[in-house]
Amino acid sequence: MEVKLQQSELSSEIGRLLRKHFGKGPEAVFVTIASPYVIIYLRHFLSPIENMLLEDNHTMTVEEIRDKMMRKLNDKIKEMIHSVTGLPIKEFYYDWTFQNGSGLLVGVEEKTERFFEYNYPNRREIETIIAKISAEAEKHPDITYSHMLNDRTLIIIREGILVRIEEQLIELGFEEALTLAKRKLEKNLLFQAKPSFQQLLQKEIQEIFVNWDFTLDKSVIVFILAPQKNNGQ
């Protein structure tokens, strides 16, 4: 099956799965398959109950509910990606931007080699800023690398970012609280650096998503970039 057909089929399957478990599915699901990555971008994905909680400033409650649900769906989504694409997904990440009603799911194939075909201008400068942000939030990553998967999707990988106190919190069972705290802190720092990223990329950043795999001591950051405007528009 060609990639466009796989992307279309996976979009439909993910939409149905989320609708079944959340009561309301996303209005739009955009899938990018670029081995070793599968990026699933969700638009307008908020249930009426979630909207009500967010209006009453219960953002943390919505995050906790979403995280609990996604932990139950992780394996199903990885199996679904494998069934449609044939890619054996080893890692899975997710994040939300509630003010936009959007979300992102990321599957990473079980491969270790680097993919230089996803290179892009000013890559090293982008990675340097990311490493500095990481150092401010926790510590300088052992490894930082990034790939421009298409004209709207930049993925940045960090490995070796946990400090000892975070490792201890995870061991004591505070993984969920740590995720919520790190998500808020790192997103604030990433948004502060947004003008610098945009200048280097020569593109507007529409959304920023971030998540971690504490077992692997690894993090994924994804920038969703604005579409290029055609001349005359």
Rank of each mutant, 00 (worst) to 15 (best):
Glu127Gly: 04
Gly101Leu: 00
Ile129Val: 13
Phe116Cys: 09
Ile156Asp: 05
Asp142Tyr: 05
Leu105Ala: 06
Ile130Asn: 08
Arg114Ser: 12
Glu125Pro: 03
Asp95Trp: 05
Arg123Lys: 15
Ala135Phe: 07
Tyr118Arg: 12
Glu110Ser: 13
Glu136Ala: 11
Glu127Ile: 07
Phe115Ile: 09
Tyr145Val: 01
Arg123Trp: 05
Ala137Pro: 04
Asn100His: 14
Asn119Trp: 11
Asp95Phe: 01
Pro121Asn: 13
Ile130Met: 14
His147Asp: 11
Asn100Leu: 14
Ile155Ser: 07
Gly103Ser: 01
Asp142Trp: 03
His140Pro: 04
Tyr145Asn: 06
Arg114Ala: 14
Thr97Arg: 14
Phe98Ala: 02
Asn122Val: 01
Gly103Gln: 03
Met148Asp: 00
Gly103Ala: 07
Ser102Leu: 00
Pro141Gly: 06
Asp142Asn: 06
Ile155Lys: 06
Leu105His: 05
Tyr94Glu: 09
Gly101Ile: 03
Glu117Tyr: 13
Gly107Cys: 11
Phe98Asp: 04
Phe116Asp: 13
Tyr93Pro: 01
Asn150Thr: 02
Leu105Phe: 13
Leu149Gly: 00
Tyr145Ala: 04
Asp142Pro: 00
Pro121Cys: 09
Glu110Leu: 11
Arg124Phe: 11
Asn122Ile: 05
Ile126Cys: 04
Arg114His: 12
Gly101Glu: 01
His147Cys: 03
Asn122Lys: 15
Lys132Tyr: 13
Phe116Leu: 14
Thr153Ala: 03
Arg152Trp: 08
Thr153Gln: 07
Lys111Val: 14
Ile126Ser: 03
Thr128Met: 10
Thr97Asp: 15
Glu113Thr: 12
Gly101Pro: 02
Lys111Pro: 04
Tyr120Pro: 05
Trp96Ile: 05
Ser134Gln: 07
Val106Lys: 04
Ala135Leu: 06
Glu138Arg: 11
Pro121Phe: 11
Ile156Ser: 07
Tyr120Ser: 10
Glu136Pro: 00
Glu136Arg: 14
Ala131Asp: 09
Asp151Asn: 14
Phe115Pro: 00
Ile126His: 05
Glu138Met: 10
Glu113Ser: 12
Leu105Gly: 02
Trp96Tyr: 13
Arg152Asn: 15
Val108Trp: 02
Glu125Ala: 09
Arg124Ile: 10
Glu138Lys: 09
Ile133Asn: 00
Tyr93Gly: 04
Glu127Leu: 07
Ala135Met: 08
Ser134Ile: 00
Glu113Cys: 04
Phe98Ile: 02
Gly107Glu: 08
Ile133Gln: 01
Phe116Glu: 14
Asp95Leu: 00
Glu109Ile: 08
Gln99Val: 05
Asn100Asp: 13
Gly103His: 02
Glu113Ile: 12
Asn150Ile: 06
Tyr94Arg: 08
Ser102Thr: 13
Thr153Gly: 06
Ile129Trp: 08
Glu136Lys: 15
Thr144Met: 01
Phe115Tyr: 14
Pro141Glu: 01
Lys132Asp: 13
Arg124Gly: 09
Leu154Ala: 08
Asp95Cys: 06
Lys132Ser: 15
Thr112Trp: 10
Leu154Ser: 09
Lys139Asn: 10
Leu105Ser: 03
Lys139Trp: 06
Ser102Arg: 06
Asp151Lys: 13
Ala131Asn: 07
Tyr118Thr: 12
Asp95Thr: 03
Ser146Thr: 01
His147Met: 08
Leu149Val: 02
Val108Leu: 12
Arg114Pro: 02
Lys139Phe: 07
Asn119Gln: 14
Val108Ile: 15
Leu105Pro: 02
Ser134Asn: 12
Ala137Glu: 03
Ile143Ser: 07
Leu105Ile: 09
Glu110Val: 04
Thr97Asn: 15
